[in-house]
Amino acid sequence: MPEAAREKPGTLISSRAEARYGRGVAEIQQDVHAVNFSQEMVDLFLDGDGQRC
């Protein structure tokens, strides 16, 4: 599944699981954790105009 997610990042993982296993997803649980990034890391994700790459 990870390689399929990389190919089409806009597709929900739940949709891929439903298609692959032929079963519906009734609930999704997600954990979100905040982290601090160094300016060097931030620069890797932004282009020269401050927009996401």
Rank of each mutant, 00 (worst) to 15 (best):
E7W: 02
E7Y: 06
E7I: 03
E7C: 02
E7K: 11
K8A: 10
K8F: 06
P9W: 00
G10V: 01
G10N: 10
G10H: 07
T11G: 01
T11R: 15
T11F: 04
L12H: 12
L12P: 09
L12Q: 12
I13V: 15
S14Y: 09
S14C: 12
R16K: 12
R16Y: 07
A17T: 01
E18W: 01
E18R: 03
E18Y: 01
A19L: 07
R20Q: 14
R20G: 01
R20W: 07
R20C: 05
R20P: 00
R20E: 12
Y21I: 01
Y21C: 03
Y21G: 01
Y21T: 01
G22I: 01
G22S: 02
R23S: 09
G24H: 12
G24W: 04
G24T: 15
V25M: 02
V25F: 00
V25D: 00
A26R: 12
A26T: 11
A26C: 06
E27H: 10
E27S: 09
E27W: 05
E27K: 14
I28N: 06
I28L: 14
I28Y: 04
I28S: 06
I28E: 08
Q29C: 07
Q29V: 13
Q29I: 09
Q29S: 11
Q29N: 13
Q29L: 11
Q29T: 10
Q29W: 08
Q30I: 12
D31W: 07
D31H: 14
D31P: 00
V32G: 06
H33N: 13
H33M: 15
H33A: 15
H33P: 00
H33W: 15
H33S: 15
A34H: 09
V35L: 13
V35A: 12
V35E: 08
N36E: 13
N36S: 15
N36R: 14
F37P: 01
F37I: 08
S38F: 04
S38E: 14
S38M: 06
Q39T: 10
Q39A: 12
Q39L: 12
E40N: 06
E40V: 05
E40D: 10
M41E: 11
M41D: 11
M41T: 11
M41I: 11
M41S: 08
V42W: 04
V42L: 15
D43Q: 14
D43L: 03
D43I: 01
D43G: 03
L44I: 08
